[in-house]
Amino acid sequence: MSVDAPLVTLRFFGALRDTIGQKEVCLPCAGGTVKEILLRFVEEHGDAVRHFIFDEQGNQWRSLLLLLNDEPIEDNQETHVKAGDVISLLLPLAGG
């Protein structure tokens, strides 16, 4: 991967970070939509990661919060991501 590749960062929190074993992953896929980037990411990381993000029908879990550059995303099916953007993936925390 060239350093000039248009990178997008996926940043993980909670159980997702523990499963992946990394705080963040960079993917050379700027230009795609948030949904396309997530699909590509789970293809590379297998079922252990996939089941945190998509249900068996391939729909994103409604218990997953996605943020783009620490801001809300209107529609992750349509929103295009540019080089340098950071997508954060959060799960709710049960404990109290």
Partner: peptide, 11 residues
């Protein structure tokens, strides 16, 4: 933020 609870066992 989280429209529905996560499925059992995920979190």
């Amino acid at each position: 933020l989280y429209p529905d609870p996560p499925p059992p066992g995920l979190v």
